[in-house]
Design a protein around this nucleic acid. Structure first.
Lengths: 196, 196, 196, 196
DNA sequence: GATGAATGAGGCTTCATTCAT
DNA sequence: CATGAATGAAGCCTCATTCAT
């Protein structure tokens, strides 16, 4: 499954030959079929087995966390990055996005088990922050979505464009900027309000 | 090219058969080869012809814009959405991301002609905002990247997960939240600063 | 279809490679798929197209025949032999019998369109013979079945054991013996009756 | 061998997987190779071991029989049916016919050890009947062949078309009709002779 | 310019066979 | 003796590409 994930992410599902998966895994082509009924099933297994533990871990963290919403946000983002973003698993979103048209049930699984749970987690954090008076009042649901954007972008980036950059992006700096952006915004405190 | 884009985005490059492209375009398979030397060339043409006009238009808008940085930001985001996000072209990022491993030169082209120009545009807006005193001082480059995340997310969303949602996301509301988030942040003005 | 029939009969369905069918037909492997969706469909087409005209021809003959039942019987048997037995089509029964387990619907088609029609034809001849007083009274249905045995045997023989015989069986002589057997039996007219 | 025979007959040799043979026999796939060098050898063993005792028994019966030719004929046919036709062994002719093209030596073995011995047995009975004046004079050899047809047909029938019939054929009645047909023919005794 | 029949390389999948345990 | 995991050759099928019409 490790070998398959690597190749699926790198080349896409269709362009990956099972023979390559097998040889990277150090087994023969036929051996794959002892464990996965088909290439499709291999893909599903790769996604299911890879992503579920990570999302569960983030949920656990959020439940047990004691600290301000800003701190929790940083903790969750850092956890996601160390467990997924900085891992082969960061390729799964790319894979799902690319193959959503061909594997709608797999995309739906991901939507249900990862995206919805992730959004629930995030809206929970935001609502808690508002209740505690740490965050201002705002439209929680679309904001939570927007906040996932930069995180997703980083994961996709690693697997699609990183290699073209002269100096690899410093992830620490990126996360700091992300949290600053999200928590404090860009506008100068005493500047006029109008954005519309 | 329209037909090809549709199918490439929906199914991915490898899983799209030229026969389907041809029949959706209302021509025969052989006819495609009168206009594109190969399937690869068709992909490149689809990307090149689709994306360049859009980015140019955004650059022009920014050059000629008179107004606050916040207003310019809204104008640019709205333009991108109406010209790309709300269009078939919104599928191109998905396509490029999915196929970056198989078409590195195409990904590099996209990196150079879309991403870098987009980032330059965005950093330009931010720096201008800082210079004018409308925006606070911050680390411009990674912040510009982070700001692209939610926009990209919306484009990918349409082509990967939108169909699973009970009620389609209201894009207007999403953009408003995005701008609010980015300009003003989430933290309650008088709340303690510490995020770290 | 001709090439396929030849090879299916010679080697069996499973042991026949489509590549061999193609090359015997003088086309490439892919070409087959322009005309038949799969190997299974090719088999079905071979059987359907091959056998239906032959059975129809025999039915027509029987309808229009003027003469004694014995003469009609000879005419039908001779027709079957010249149109099927002495033809590649004689391999179809072998093929159907061999593959009935794997293609039950095809076997059922054959049962319905060939066997049942053939039995109906034969019982019709026999009943007419009895009505006309040309044939004695007997149990028509199982007798009709038994009468098909030697004919089927001859067809199977050609494709399974003929090559082992020092001198090929004289079909004329076989048919004469068959008719004599069936019409007059073996018992000496004045010999005692008891067979049980 | 029992399991193999069942599956070979049902699906044909090529379409039968050794794994299925093994699991039906209640052993593992590897175990088969402790007893048979290859799938081909298994087929040969199945045929050789299955069919030789049956033909020998028929020969013994004929040698020791005391009674009229008609009675002997009935005895032999009944014996064949109870020992082969009504047994799994009835599938062997189907198997041999189906695979004669792929296993010529096996077909030749069958031709030599079963068909020729069977024909010799049958011609012996017929010649004896003629000598004794119980049977009329006729062309013995092709007649003997023709007489095997209905018997073979019944064996093939069981394994190919029986399942499509609303009411299974009564074998007793079939054998009676067969003997009546063969011994007495169909023609009304006082009807005109001409069949040609 | 347009067609669509033909091609054949390539990939998924099966399964007979082997062999370490 | 028995197992069953592993192998890899072989076959079905797809589809990008060609080309005569």
């Amino acid at each position: 499954m490790q070998a398959a994930l690597e190749l699926f992410v790198e080349r896409g599902f269709a362009a990956t030959r099972l023979e390559d998966v097998a040889s990277r895994a150090g087994v023969s082509k036929g051996t794959l079929y002892l464990y996965f009924r088909s290439k499709d099933e291999l893909l599903k297994a790769v996604v299911r087995c890879g992503i579920l533990p990570a999302i569960a871990k983030a949920e656990t963290l959020a439940e047990q966390f004691a600290g301000s919403s800003g701190e929790l946000l940083r903790a969750v983002v850092t956890l996601i990055w160390s467990n997924v973003g900085d891992t082969l698993l960061s390729g799964i979103p790319k894979l799902i996005i690319a193959e959503s048209g061909n594997f709608p049930e797999l995309a739906q699984f991901y939507y249900r088990e990862v995206i919805q749970r992730g959004l629930t987690l995030m809206t929970g954090i935001l609502e808690q922050g508002i209740r505690r008076g740490e965050l201002r009042k705002f439209d929680v649901e679309p904001t939570a979505r927007a906040m996932m954007g930069p995180i997703l972008l980083m994961m996709l980036w690693r697997h699609s464009f990183q290699s073209f950059e002269s100096e690899p992006l410093a992830i620490e700096r990126y996360i700091d900027c992300y949290l600053m952006l999200v928590l404090d915004g860009l506008r100068k405190p005493n500047s006029p309000e109008a954005t519309r």
